[in-house]
Amino acid sequence: MIVQTLLQEFEHEVASTRKLLQAVPEKDINFKPSPVSWTMGQLAQHIATIYYWYTGTLTQDVYDMAADRLERGDPADIQATLALFEDNVEKARAALKTVTEESLQVPWTMKVGEHTVLGPLPRGMVTRSFLFNHIYHHRGEMIVYLRTTGNSVPGMYGPTYEQEQAMKNTAK
């Protein structure tokens, strides 16, 4: 039951993430809200990269980030990031389709070399927190970046405030 729910949520949220990444404009790709923040392009690339981590999380009991290499390209190239996103979504979808109710209970650990950074935790918990919720967190940041730079934010769970206002104005 939970596996089917995860697959449905994944597909629904991929569409929302795609809309958000497609809203990132080239003109503001180097915007960063503070000196310690990522640029808009780096944040977009990070969101696209999280989908890559599904494979290591769902198919390995110990995922060593130091041993895993992903060619990301230039974070200032939003088209490259969109292509990275689409490629990683396909890999994530394939990995999710291998999951069983039982495999969600298996302990999972993330390492960077010999250093354990997460776990051991049940794979199902890691799937919700490290994968799903992690993406949602960074999508929220991206919405702030877009609004701060005066860009439109796509409606992901219904119309945005701006879309509602436009509908009210056209109804008058």
Rank of each mutant, 00 (worst) to 15 (best):
L7D: 03
F10M: 00
E11P: 02
E13L: 11
E13T: 10
V14D: 11
V14P: 04
K19V: 04
L20Q: 03
L20H: 05
L21D: 02
V24P: 03
P25V: 01
E26C: 11
K27Q: 15
K27E: 15
I29C: 09
N30D: 15
K32N: 06
K32G: 04
P33V: 02
S34L: 14
P35I: 12
S37R: 11
G41R: 01
G41E: 03
H46P: 07
I47G: 04
A48S: 12
Y52S: 12
Y52M: 05
Y52C: 04
T55W: 04
G56M: 04
Y63W: 12
Y63T: 00
D64F: 06
R69Q: 14
L70D: 08
L70M: 07
E71L: 02
R72D: 02
D74E: 04
A76E: 07
I78W: 03
L82A: 06
L84N: 06
L84Q: 12
E86G: 04
N88S: 12
K91S: 09
K91C: 02
A92D: 03
A95S: 08
L96F: 11
L96P: 09
K97G: 07
T98M: 12
T100G: 05
E101G: 11
E102I: 00
E102S: 07
Q105C: 06
W108D: 05
T109D: 08
M110I: 07
E114L: 04
H115I: 12
T116S: 14
V117R: 10
P120Y: 13
L121Y: 04
R128E: 14
S129W: 13
S129K: 11
F130D: 10
F132D: 09
N133A: 13
H134Y: 08
H134T: 13
H134I: 01
H134P: 08
I135N: 11
I135S: 12
Y136I: 07
H137P: 09
R139N: 11
R139C: 09
G140H: 14
E141D: 15
M142F: 08
I143Q: 06
V144K: 11
R147C: 03
T148R: 09
T149S: 00
T149G: 02
S152P: 08
S152W: 05
V153A: 07
G155S: 09
M156P: 03
Y157W: 12
G158R: 09
G158N: 10
P159G: 10
Y161I: 02
E162A: 11
E162Y: 00
E164M: 08
E164A: 04
A166Y: 06
